[in-house]
Design a protein around this nucleic acid. Structure first.
Lengths: 218, 218
DNA sequence: ATTACTAAAAGACGAGTAA
DNA sequence: TTTACTCGTCTTTTAGTAA
């Protein structure tokens, strides 16, 4: 617990997305402790896999690992839940972009298609609308983790494994329904969402690349 | 530090905006400790002024105080800063509402007017545009505290005291400049912002009550 | 100057107990 | 049942020291 607090400080000092150079004495000031404790904290964080270090005679270079970032995110989400519990809806805003065209393939796959029909209660239009999130929405996307999601199971077909994912029902303009689909695959970009809908969204909402769009998570 | 963590748990259990009833034994489960430690935590939180309690033979009724909420907010803001540091701009969205008409009076007061001209580098149009924030923006407003602000000093005039406040330069539509003015007075609603600008915003941006508007904090 | 060890001091924890 | 005390135990911190 005390370690998370130290990790937070490191993140604030710039270790969240970069390398910071500091000595135990320096760090001690930030966490209001003795240099010994500061040193021990760094050791503990390293052992927990939250940071990586390179110790030099003049101090150390510290970087937060993916695991560390996840630990911070968990904490962040809890606070976020406290402060946004009463704002029942989340909005995400971004710009329409062209995806890799995989959407059309996947929405047509029986293994996915049947789950969409059953769980989302609509017949998905073949193809997805890709949105690149902007500004605040990039951070807000992680808020989805707090919401209940509809789980889409993975499956095997044609000697291939198709991964699972989760869906969040949304509302778009003009009363259009849809759902955000987030594959559970690990290396999915954080600032892009993929939307499936019973309708051709580009036609109905008159969207083209670069169009600004806001979706409301239900 | 350990206490803030306990406070967070209480907030998540519903104590943030209500009264929760629990016993030490119950709370112990949530914070993974012994009932004794749980009891001690509650005592410490009370002593710190973060919660108020009403102890009964069957347990206790707990409520988080304003001070407690502020402590949590401080923590929340730090995490928020970590996760949104790279999104340089904050956007706030809401609907135009009619204020109390005080804006016109205040913007004309020499004590304020001269500071606006000097610090914001524009001649304020007499009157303010009031916006009721919506959705995510309500929570985002507190993010302003992380930004540098322009301090407007209070002053005395005509046997009255006029309070100070802080300003944040913003951009509205069509390249219009302006600033959010937040009085430092304690009981100012959290979901309303007041905007001063060199122009008559209602005319220039064709706004009326209920119009949706987004402002971009610089 | 560092980091990180050891050992003494301080503090937190939880079992037992009283109200 | 509660809450909250005392007290022995265990953990954490810091001073001192070595590398």
């Amino acid at each position: 617990m005390e370690n998370i607090s130290a990790l937070k400080k490191l993140a604030l000092l710039g270790g969240f997305d970069g390398i910071i150079t500091l000595s135990s004495t320096e760090f001690a000031q930030y966490i209001s402790s003795s240099p010994q404790t500061a040193s021990r904290r760094l050791q503990a964080l390293e052992q927990a896999g939250y940071i990586t270090r390179k110790i030099e005679s003049s101090g150390q270079k510290v970087m937060i690992t993916k695991q560390g970032r996840q630990a911070l995110e968990t904490e962040y989400m809890e606070y976020r839940q406290i402060f946004t519990r009463n704002s029942t809806h989340i909005e995400l805003t971004g710009k329409v972009i062209t995806g890799l065209g995989e959407g059309q393939y996947y929405t047509n796959l029986k293994g996915y298609h049947d789950q969409f029909v059953k769980l989302l209660e609509f017949e998905p239009y073949p193809g997805t609308l890709n949105i690149k999130l902007e500004g605040e929405s990039v951070g807000c996307r992680t808020m989805l983790n707090l919401k209940d999601s509809i789980i889409i199971d993975g499956f095997n077909s044609k000697n291939r494994t198709f991964g699972g994912g989760r869906c969040y029902p949304i509302k778009l303009g003009k009363g259009t329904r849809g759902a955000i689909m987030i594959p559970e695959r690990t290396h999915y970009p954080e600032d892009i969402i993929e939307i499936i809908s019973p309708e051709n969204l580009r036609n109905k909402l008159k969207l083209k690349d670069g169009s600004k769009i806001t979706v409301l998570i239900e």
